[in-house]
Design a protein around this nucleic acid. Structure first.
Lengths: 206, 206
DNA sequence: CTCCATGAACTGAACTGTACAGTACTGCCA
DNA sequence: TGGCAGTACTGTACAGTTCAGTTCATGGAG
């Protein structure tokens, strides 16, 4: 699929934004192409020129989100690896990590992709693998650095996965079954702190 | 709505079974009432006599699953509370627990309920709360007994939630994005063992 | 015991109404 | 003159209904 369209105005991102909004609000099935076109202030015909079917449009929306997520920077990883107070700095990292990954749009998109996993199996697998791998890679790298300094020890792959789920499982679960509510940051911080405490008890040294 | 129907045969469970099968196979949207009726070997008219809409039928299916889940027994909790080798017995318990809660149908139903959480918000909340509360209650009771014997210590509510997610988050996540595959029991056992090890490192005593 | 009347529950198939993805067409503006 | 907006249209899929007829249990009459 070549990018040789829309000579004058690049309407593609505009359409994708509108589609994303409507898909997130209504889900794939209940989202109407008319509504997407209206929100993009574009005619349906033009929309179909860019994306020949609703399925392809949805795929494009999700693909773009996947690629965007991969460009997010890792933040304070270096300072954390050089920490002099691991519990404190790991708590700060964990809080930020959770807050990032539980942004409302991200949670809703995750729910949406999961809900349509039967219709878009490749998309769902890609979403999960790329996203999870990214989180795990970050954590493994961090724990590798910490292990070299003797601050943590154990199976670092398992450590990364357990830490990831200690942080994310509860908010992910809530977002699945209570799509409207966004978890309060305060609760999230406490949640992250508890995860850090358990993680350090199991894997921390010194 | 009185139960004074179907003098001869109680077709209600028959319809619910068929509906459950088709909903699990196709999802709510793609499931056709005709297919459900055909599978139940019943006419569409009869089906609508028992369940006046597809929505009500779906609700009834899920409600029944929720109630069924509440009748499952807790198994070896007593022997575990009186254990003389906590790591070994907790591993056995964890393996069985995970195996039970990650049965293919249960995972698929969870996915389905989450996917339709927008259309059936009460149903989704009920599913999540009742199911999670049941798991947490079981674990809290267990940890309470163990705490009295000095085998574990710490915030038992947090302990129960963390243990729950250490056990379930990974298989739940996989089932969301790869609905077809069922996790291999061997992997699940290893997964459960790792969760137990981390849990005991954080909360175990003696 | 047999026969038929009665009525409830059921079947099968055709039908209705609607919602919506995708298309065709007309005219506008650059 | 070519891309686009606006709108009306087409085709289809499917939830829910209607209807004409079938099955079957009951029960009373002969």
């Amino acid at each position: 699929m070549e990018r040789a369209r829309g000579r004058g105005a690049p309407k593609e991102p505009l359409i994708l934004d509108a589609a994303r909004t409507v898909f997130l609000r209504r889900g794939f099935g209940a989202a109407g192409v008319d509504e997407i076109a209206a929100l993009a202030a574009i005619s349906k015909v033009t929309l179909y020129k860019y994306f020949p079917s609703k399925e392809l449009l949805f795929s494009a929306v999700v693909q773009r989100d996947i690629e965007r997520a991969e460009r997010v920077s890792d933040g304070h990883l270096d300072t954390l690896a050089a920490t002099t107070d691991l519990p404190r700095d790991l708590r700060a990292f964990a809080r930020e990590f959770v807050a990032t990954v539980t942004g409302p749009d991200l949670l809703r998109m995750r729910r949406l992709v999961a809900a349509e996993a039967e219709r878009f199996p490749d998309l769902a697998r890609t979403w999960d693998e790329r996203g999870r791998r990214r989180g795990l890679d970050t954590l493994r790298r961090l724990f590798g650095d910490l292990a070299e300094r003797g601050l943590v020890a154990g199976d670092l792959d398992v450590a990364a996965e357990q830490f990831l789920w200690l942080l994310l499982a509860a908010p992910f679960n809530e977002s699945l079954f209570t799509p409207a509510a966004t978890p309060a940051p305060r609760d999230l911080d406490a949640h992250a702190d508890a995860a850090v405490a358990t993680f350090l008890a199991a894997y921390g040294r010194k």
